[in-house]
Amino acid sequence: MAETDFEPKIVAFLCNWCTYTGADLAGTSRIQYPPNVRIIRLMCSGSVDPTYVLKPLLDGADGVLIGGCHPGDCHYQSGNYKARRRVVALKEILKGAGIDEDRVWLRWISASEGQRFADTITEMTEFLKDKGSNPMRREWAV
């Protein structure tokens, strides 16, 4: 059941060349989206270490977004493919650890897709609101 007044906390790892620039474009275009996302800039989605995803989830973040270039567009040729494979493997591990793997999103958003970035954040925020807060938050609080 959705909690009332629950504001999910999303940590986003965005690649410098596509999604981070797309997020900047959302800004220069003044496209509004929920303030629930906190962005960390990396050079490539392929440099997202599994611990970068695990730590926020264990610390109580409600969702983690990884944003990279569209397939074929990676600034480093193949970093986004590496990210894709890692996320698939990581989701299996999350499942095994009893963490809801749907809290981790991987999305391809290009430098020209400011609207798509804003829509993704809106969608993810709504999705996590429905899902409710990360139970880790309470467990660790004990």
Binding site: V11, L42, G46, D49
Partner: peptide, 28 residues
């Protein structure tokens, strides 16, 4: 790009300016 740093099973590779130490401090 940092692909090697994530791949390294011994965590012997560090991507300078985007090290695990730095990123995890940001997460914190």
């Amino acid at each position: 790009c940092g692909a090697c740093a994530v791949t390294c099973p011994s965590k012997a590779i560090r991507l300078q300016h985007f090290t695990a130490e730095q990123v995890l401090a940001q997460v914190d």
